[in-house]
Design a protein around this nucleic acid. Structure first.
Lengths: 224, 224
DNA sequence: CCGACTTTGTGCATCGGTTCACAAAGGGCT
DNA sequence: AGCCCTTTGTGAACCGATGCACAAAGTCGG
C-alpha cells in the first residue's frame, strides 16, 4: 500500500463542519505572511481545542511535521481539496428578497470558490433587474437556467410557502445540494442533501440562555 | 414537592437547539386549526424521529396525554416559556449593510418575541436613514443606545475587521448574548454567549458532500 | 364498568464525538 | 553524530446524544 495515502474514506461529519473554520483561520494567517503554524496556535485562531484540531486534521492525512507544525500554504491546499473548493461551483439563488439580495452580494461565497451564476424570482417587479452584476430571471425559466449555467447547488431564499415547490422542481432537474433559508422542512429523496439555516433559531437559543442567566439560581417561575 | 414540576434544570443543549423547530411546526398546526397532535405527526412535521421528539419534550415536563397526544396550544405555550419567548427581547443590529438590512426586515424575528430596537452603523452615508421603520444611529452612540433601549441581545453584521471592537464595547456595557455574522472568532469573557452563523460554511459542507457524490464509488483521486 | 387500543415516557444499549495523556517523530544545537 | 526539545498523531477512557422497544397510562366504544 502506498505510504502517503492514509486519507480515509469517511471523514466524521463533525470534522467536516469544522474544516471551513480552519480554512478561514489559515487564510488569515497566509495573508499575514505566516508560513508555519502549530496545532496550538491554529486551534486558538479557530476557537477550538488543540487535540480536536489534530484529530480532525489526522483524518485527512499526516500533513504536519512533528516538532514544527503545519505548513500554512500546504494545509490550505489540502483542506480546500478535501472540501471540494478547488473546483468551481455554480450556485443559483432563488428568491431575491432582502435575504436573497444580501446573499447575492455576500463576499464570503466568491472567495471560497462559489460563483453565483443565476438569480431567479417570481415577482415581475424584480425580474429583469440587475443585482450584484446579474440579471434576475423569471421563475418559469428555473429549469432552463439551471441546466444552461451548470448549476449544482441551489440556495432557497423564497417565502416559506414557495420553498417546497421550487425544491421539487430543482430536484427534478438533477440538483442534489440545497441550502434552505425558508423556515420549512423540505421533503426530498434521500439522495439529496439539504442544509438549512434559520436565522431566528439562533436567536431563540440565545434567548434561552439569556433567560437562565437573568433568572439566576432563583428562577422563581411559579407556573402562571 | 409540587407534583407537576418534573421540569428539570439542565436541558441538553441538543434539545434546546431543536425546540425552536418544534415550535415552528406547532405554530403551523395551530394556524391550520389542529388542536391535538401525536409525537409521530409532530416529529414528521419537524423533520426528526419521534422517539427523539418525545425524549426532548420529556425534559420540559409531562405535557402529553397517553393515547391522545399533545395539546398544540398548550405545548406552544410551554416551549415558548422554556425558551424565554414569552418575554420581549430588545435586539440591536450593528452593521447595516446588505445583511444587516435583510435581518432588520426579516419577519422571523418579530414573530418570535424579538423586537429590533436599534440599528447602528459607522458609515455616515447610512446613518440617519430609515430602515424597516427604524432610524439608523451612529456607532458613537452604541453604548447610549443599548442602555436607553434596554437591548439585551446584539446582532453583529459588521465587516470582519470591525467585529471584535464592537463586541468588546457591547460586552463592556453588559450585553451577554451576541449573534455573530462576521467571519471571525470573537474572544469574550465566558460569561458571554456567542453564537455564530457563517453563511459560507454551510455551502462548503454541501460542496464536500456534492464532491463525494460526483466522484461516486470510484473517486480516483491520485494526489495531484 | 370493563377491555381493547393508542400513544406517551423512559430504561437501556449503542454510537459518535471529545478529551486526556503519551509514545513516536522530526528539527536544531553543540 | 548524538542529544534534547518541541510538537504531532493516536490509543483509550469518557461523555452526551440517539434510537429501540416496552411497560405504564390514559381514552373510547360497547
Amino acid at each position: 500500500m502506498s505510504p502517503s495515502q492514509p486519507r480515509d474514506r469517511g471523514i466524521p461529519e463533525a470534522t467536516v463542519a469544522r474544516l471551513p473554520l480552519y480554512l478561514r483561520a489559515l487564510h488569515g494567517m497566509a495573508e499575514r505572511g505566516i508560513a508555519t503554524v502549530s496545532s496550538e496556535d491554529l486551534a486558538a485562531a479557530a476557537g477550538v481545542n488543540s487535540a480536536k484540531l489534530r484529530k480532525d486534521l489526522s483524518h485527512l492525512g499526516s500533513y504536519g511535521t512533528r516538532g514544527v507544525g503545519y505548513d500554512v500554504e500546504y494545509l490550505v491546499y489540502q483542506i480546500s481539496r478535501e472540501l471540494g473548493l478547488t473546483q468551481d461551483w455554480a450556485v443559483a439563488i432563488v428568491g431575491v428578497g432582502n435575504l436573497g439580495r444580501a446573499l447575492a452580494n455576500y463576499g464570503g461565497f466568491v472567495s471560497r470558490g462559489f460563483r453565483v451564476a443565476a438569480l431567479v424570482d417570481a415577482d415581475p417587479e424584480v425580474v429583469g433587474d440587475t443585482i450584484a452584476g446579474l440579471n434576475v430571471e423569471h421563475i418559469d425559466e428555473l429549469e432552463a437556467v439551471i441546466k444552461r449555467r451548470g448549476v449544482s447547488i441551489v440556495v432557497l431564499a423564497t417565502p416559506a410557502a414557495a420553498a417546497q415547490e421550487v425544491c421539487d422542481r430543482v430536484v427534478a432537474v438533477g440538483v442534489t445540494s440545497i441550502l434552505n433559508f425558508a423556515p420549512v422542512v423540505l421533503s426530498v429523496p434521500d439522495t439529496v442533501d439539504v442544509r438549512k439555516v434559520d436565522l431566528s433559531i439562533e436567536l431563540q437559543i440565545l434567548a434561552f440562555h439569556e433567560q437562565r442567566k437573568a433568572g439566576g439560581p432563583l428562577m422563581a417561575v411559579d407556573s402562571q
